[in-house]
């Protein structure tokens, strides 16, 4: 059992990182803290996918030698890293920066309206305003 945990240590640490992000999204009251938690959660998932493509004893990216002329050699896929998860995760990183930007814009609008970023206070002010009929 202990050997099983140690041999796959990176996956366990990714899960711990993911749970840190989930805790921040659920339990923290400040909206910026929730956004930081979302960023941590996203990077933990991206980390997991990139680590799938790593193979033991292979550190090269696939580069074809002599691909245009004669003497092209056969490429063994087992000798190289798997580049497919890298390319997919590039898209995920760019999408994550877009969601962060939109979320920060919404946060600034919320702050202008309620003068606070605390979730409890925002709900309180909203209820008070609804009762007053504003």
């Amino acid at each position: 059992m202990l050997e099983f945990i140690i041999s796959k240590y990176n996956f366990w640490l990714y899960v711990i990182l993911m749970m840190i992000g989930l805790y921040a999204m659920l339990a923290k009251r400040n909206l910026v803290k929730k956004l930081i938690g979302m960023n941590i959660f996203q990077t933990a998932i991206i980390l997991f996918y990139v680590s799938i493509g790593v193979k033991k004893g292979s550190v090269h990216v696939p580069i074809i030698v002599d691909s245009h002329g004669h003497g092209a050699q056969l490429i063994h896929a087992a000798d190289y890293l798997n580049p497919l998860p890298h390319v997919l995760m590039l898209t995920a990183i760019v999408v994550s920066i877009a969601t962060t930007g939109v979320a920060l814009a919404v946060l600034i609008l919320i702050y202008r309206r309620y003068q606070t970023l605390n979730e409890d206070e925002i709900i309180h002010i909203r209820q008070a305003r609804q009762k007053a009929g504003v």
């Binding site: 990077t43 991206i46 790593v54 990216v61 890298h86 995760m89 590039l90 990183i93 760019v94 920066i97």
Partner: peptide, 13 residues
Amino acid sequence: GAVDVAFTEASVA
């Protein structure tokens, strides 16, 4: 070994 992802992370994220 994911050098392309590292570049993007350093510049974007």
